[in-house]
Simulated scan of single mutants.
Amino acid sequence: MIAINDTLFSRASAEVIDLHRFFVGWFVAARADEVDFSRFERAMGEGFAMVAPDGQVLDRAAVVDHVRSSRATCDDGFAIAIEDIRPGWQSADTIVVFYVEAQLRAGRHSRRQSSAVFTISSSAPNGVEWRHLHETWLQMPEG
């Protein structure tokens, strides 16, 4: 059994929730002017990579560019909920966190199982930075 570092898990959990709040603010047209994009850039560690739900592998630059260009592309109905967040493997400065991301976009529901790797970083929001993210469809957008 792995000993859980509650502080590292609480930081990573807070980061998952806070980053998805950032996405809602950034993507919703009515709120986008109030959101600081640098928060997102500070959270993405050097060498960050993502496996999107469709299997595409994206490097940090591609993810940052995609998020930047998606500003104000959603209506007020866009929502994200984070469910079933739990710790996975961890060491003194690294943790894997599992969670389900549920989205409502343009009236269509979707869900994805995610696993993310975080490392401690004093300059990142919540004291951890994203190093890797893997998302898998549980429910593709309806419609």
Rank of each mutant, 00 (worst) to 15 (best):
residue 2 I to V: 10
residue 2 I to T: 13
residue 4 I to G: 04
residue 4 I to E: 12
residue 6 D to H: 14
residue 7 T to P: 04
residue 8 L to T: 03
residue 13 S to L: 05
residue 14 A to W: 05
residue 16 V to E: 02
residue 18 D to N: 14
residue 19 L to K: 12
residue 21 R to V: 10
residue 22 F to I: 07
residue 22 F to N: 00
residue 24 V to T: 13
residue 24 V to S: 13
residue 26 W to T: 00
residue 27 F to T: 06
residue 28 V to E: 06
residue 28 V to N: 09
residue 29 A to H: 12
residue 32 A to P: 05
residue 35 V to Q: 02
residue 36 D to Y: 00
residue 38 S to P: 01
residue 39 R to C: 03
residue 40 F to Y: 15
residue 42 R to I: 02
residue 42 R to H: 10
residue 42 R to L: 11
residue 46 E to R: 09
residue 46 E to N: 13
residue 47 G to K: 01
residue 49 A to C: 12
residue 51 V to F: 09
residue 52 A to K: 11
residue 53 P to A: 13
residue 54 D to R: 06
residue 55 G to C: 11
residue 56 Q to R: 14
residue 57 V to Q: 08
residue 57 V to D: 01
residue 58 L to Y: 05
residue 59 D to M: 04
residue 60 R to Y: 06
residue 62 A to I: 02
residue 65 D to N: 12
residue 68 R to D: 07
residue 69 S to C: 07
residue 69 S to H: 09
residue 74 C to L: 10
residue 75 D to V: 00
residue 76 D to G: 14
residue 76 D to M: 12
residue 78 F to L: 05
residue 79 A to F: 15
residue 82 I to K: 06
residue 85 I to V: 13
residue 85 I to G: 01
residue 85 I to T: 04
residue 86 R to A: 15
residue 89 W to K: 03
residue 89 W to P: 08
residue 92 A to Y: 06
residue 94 T to S: 14
residue 97 V to C: 03
residue 98 F to K: 03
residue 99 Y to P: 08
residue 100 V to T: 14
residue 102 A to Y: 07
residue 102 A to Q: 13
residue 104 L to G: 02
residue 105 R to W: 14
residue 106 A to L: 10
residue 108 R to A: 14
residue 110 S to N: 04
residue 110 S to L: 11
residue 110 S to F: 09
residue 111 R to D: 09
residue 111 R to E: 15
residue 113 Q to C: 14
residue 114 S to N: 13
residue 116 A to P: 04
residue 118 F to P: 11
residue 121 S to R: 06
residue 123 S to V: 10
residue 124 A to R: 02
residue 125 P to R: 05
residue 125 P to E: 02
residue 127 G to A: 01
residue 128 V to N: 03
residue 130 W to G: 05
residue 132 H to Q: 13
residue 133 L to M: 12
residue 135 E to W: 09
residue 138 L to F: 07
residue 140 M to H: 09
residue 141 P to T: 03
residue 141 P to A: 01
residue 141 P to Y: 02
residue 141 P to I: 02
residue 142 E to C: 09
